[in-house]
Design a protein around this nucleic acid. Structure first.
Lengths: 247, 247
DNA sequence: CGAGGGTTTGAAGTGCATCAAATAGTGTGG
DNA sequence: CCACACTATTTGATGCACTTCAAACCCTCG
């Protein structure tokens, strides 16, 4: 069912073309792309595969090509706190270079994914050598920080139906207007844990949101009849400009 | 009542000596310290003074010398979400340089404070010019990120008395053991908002924590009879090593 | 078709918020 | 030094939101 390597991305040239699309590698010299690509390992794994665990030695960081990866921490009693869910164009494990090369959280595939593993040593090397790499890293971290503090704010001031509405709005294209149709990126179970609620609560809160804003859901397809109505309902208590800034 | 300038810190030399104590300026060349100090403005303000507001143009970032500064965002309905409270040795407003020089949150003095204002332009300049400055900035951001994701995790899995316990544990010295006495850094009202609960809830939760762990509170002085008991009660559900890593 | 996970629904419980009011503490001017 | 005003803190009563436990339903995939 899975082949160890994607049929599309097998060569250095193809890895390079993927890396060149990322703002994380923006403006880097060609030699750096060649260097990273030479050390890259492409993975294609199914749901359930653990990419790395909290506390693991961090030899690599990871660039997601497609699919979804859950970032989380496990509590002693087995419950887990999901703090991000990343997809195409995002990276994970990179901050380990500032933590003695130990991962500070766990990462697991939740929707069959392909991703590129790159050595953290090479990242450290280029951060040290190329000003551009350092700038990109800082910009990425600053963006992450904004997203995280927004999530924290939301968990305090939004109720469950609003949190779902906010999640949906962030899936919409920036300039979206009027009626919108979109697909849920992963299961409702995972959406629930991503936004910090139980599956049962999610189900009930979604019903309330449907009633309040007229949206409909059928098999992972969501139809928003009027995005303005959803924004008004969802962003009522938010400090951010409506809707929440895209990442 | 307040003098515009602290009697202790008025000269370039004194600003330099303060900056040299900060890991944020670790290993910077002497010329950089002189340069920053030449552009520094020292402030000494009372509780209630707004340092900057969400959306303000960010001409400066700030180094706290003493007192406490609240970092927060206001929601439309007037409620505010406090996401950090910073004191001596910490900085704020610095990430604005990655956000078109616009502050992404607000800062207000909550305990009479002195702090140094430094131009963000100079920070940008040195990040661009000195590799060391960029490394320090990244390390600082990485640390912040860990703290924030821990806070998010806690708001999901700890109940109110545990969150208070965790707050107290983070005030204890690293190697603390047995009985500990410490002072609350600011009012219970502010502690409550910092850890995301209402004052009434804080009061009740603190009573529960007292009963459960035997600690006593009198006028801002907290006595923890046995820190191990507190750790066992508080960190039960945490993924972090006990107690939560210091910043 | 049957097994298993994803999803929904119902009933009951828990935790925190809210509203209201009392009490304690602090700084002010007289 | 006291009365007053104002803020901080506590306490009580009540309500709401989310969770928990339990069970049903649904959907897909072998």
């Amino acid at each position: 069912m899975t082949t160890p390597y994607s049929p599309e991305i097998t060569s250095h040239a193809e890895v390079i073309s993927v890396l060149k699309t990322l703002s994380f590698f923006k403006d880097m010299p060609q030699a750096a792309f060649v260097h990273f690509a030479a050390k890259a390992h492409i993975h294609e794994d199914q749901k359930g595969k653990v990419v790395f665990l909290h506390g693991d030695n961090a030899a690599c960081f990871y660039v997601v090509i497609n699919g979804w990866i859950k970032l989380f921490r496990d509590a002693i009693d087995g419950t887990e706190a999901v703090f991000d869910m990343i997809s195409v164009g995002h990276i994970c494990g990179e901050t380990s270079i500032f933590n003695d090369n130990i991962h500070t959280y766990s990462a697991e595939i939740v929707e069959d994914a392909s991703y590129i593993a790159l050595p953290t040593s090479l990242l450290s090397y280029y951060i040290d050598k190329e000003k551009t790499m350092a700038m990109n890293m800082m910009e990425y971290m600053a963006k992450q920080q904004q997203v995280q503090s927004r999530d924290l704010e939301h968990s305090n001031i939004q109720h469950a139906p609003q949190r779902i509405g906010c999640f949906l709005l962030r899936l919409c294209p920036d300039a979206a207007d009027g009626e919108i149709t979109l697909s849920l990126p992963y299961s409702k179970l995972l959406i629930a844990s991503r936004i910090g609620m139980k599956p049962e609560t999610f189900s009930r809160a979604l019903s309330i949101l449907k009633q309040a804003t007229g949206l409909t859901v059928k098999g992972g397809q969501v139809v928003i009849p009027d995005i303005t109505v959803l924004k008004n309902y969802t962003c009522l208590h938010c400090s951010q400009h409506v809707p929440c800034a895209e990442t």
